[in-house]
Design a protein around this nucleic acid. Sequence first.
DNA 1: TCTCCTGGCTACCCGACAGTATCCGTCGGG
DNA 2: CCCGACGGATACTGTCGGGTAGCCAGGAGA
Lengths: 209, 209
Amino acid sequence: MAISSPPAAAPPGPPIREELVAFKRERILEEAVVLFYARGFTATTLDDIAAALGVTKPFIYTYFRSKTDLLAAICKPTIELSLDAVMRAASAPGSPRARLRQGVIDFAKVVLSRQANIAIFFREEKSLHPTALAEINGLRKRFDRALSSLLAEGVAAGEFHLGDTALASLAIGGMISWAYTWHRPGGRLDLDPLCAQMADFALAMAGAA
Amino acid sequence: MAISSPPAAAPPGPPIREELVAFKRERILEEAVVLFYARGFTATTLDDIAAALGVTKPFIYTYFRSKTDLLAAICKPTIELSLDAVMRAASAPGSPRARLRQGVIDFAKVVLSRQANIAIFFREEKSLHPTALAEINGLRKRFDRALSSLLAEGVAAGEFHLGDTALASLAIGGMISWAYTWHRPGGRLDLDPLCAQMADFALAMAGAA
DNA sequence: TCTCCTGGCTACCCGACAGTATCCGTCGGG
DNA sequence: CCCGACGGATACTGTCGGGTAGCCAGGAGA
């Protein structure tokens, strides 16, 4: 289901060759993230990305079908990681309280460690191919549902106190997601205490005082 | 020699003419918001906007200097309204608790009623002229400071319980701002109850249980 | 050393869009 | 009934960026 695989890569190819291809793709993505984040998607040309890599435009075209394909490859895996974080929390053992705390921490870590990717997704959503956008929005729906049902579980267990779990999941998700807007790596707070405080806020919102 | 018709719009110009100009500017902005919101800034051409208004491109150029000027005129007043909401709350009489509640409600109303403008700002930030962006970011700084000091006041009064008021103001501001992402007018919840619930979340985060 | 063949580069095309120079119809005033 | 001015349209230009066709270098095998 490789959303963006090299057009003419033979599946049973030589072993090392595949790794080379993967490595090149990864380097292209890295540089693209830096530039898209700094200048925006449309303001960044493929020539810019190629120049940053010390290659030329056709090089990129041998590893990605199009500019929007590149964008999708930046956004989708990051959203998948966010979903993973909350899914893990939803299906883990332990009290809803502990699981919510851990889920929020893991999700916050994804947001903060892949800040640029997150920012690019939310800013450039409109530039994604409709199909890719639909896939990603499916992931986001599952994210909200998982968080919401974890909250509902906590309410049923008497640990949380809130009326509208769907709204609360949007509020909690929003509070964390928003961090891509203001977080500056190497700022006043380190990653771990920051995530811990966010988790405290989330627990407060859930009425787990 | 009272030549009574200044060629360009002079401050003491004719009375009704000014209103006409303001009206045309407003209509242009309205249509631009709709299109920028739906398709994105760079994907929308000035010809598109002109067509939606039933006019042509030079018409727009007589009321706005450039495409980015149009963008600034969409974003800045909306951010000003947000700042107003929290400034009013900060300098109002009453308990910190009541003022935080009201401030959050007012701010949420700005976000939800001008959802498209907010979305455009956060998505197209990079397309703003650096000067305009700097002005807007100044407003946002003041927003955070005002909210943060209201929280500090509540802590001093013993009504709120939290350690880091600066972080809390980012978290609360983020939770509300994020609503532009998911709110659908005419959805499950009406405006007023929605804002009220957001205010409850904010109070919970402030430790005002 | 000759010859494929693969991977990357040079050089180009084409469409699109911001911004502008110029023209035209209309309307008020004399 | 003419004149001048103004609002707006038509039509053009310059530029820029995504995407592609075709060439060339260099290594591996014979």
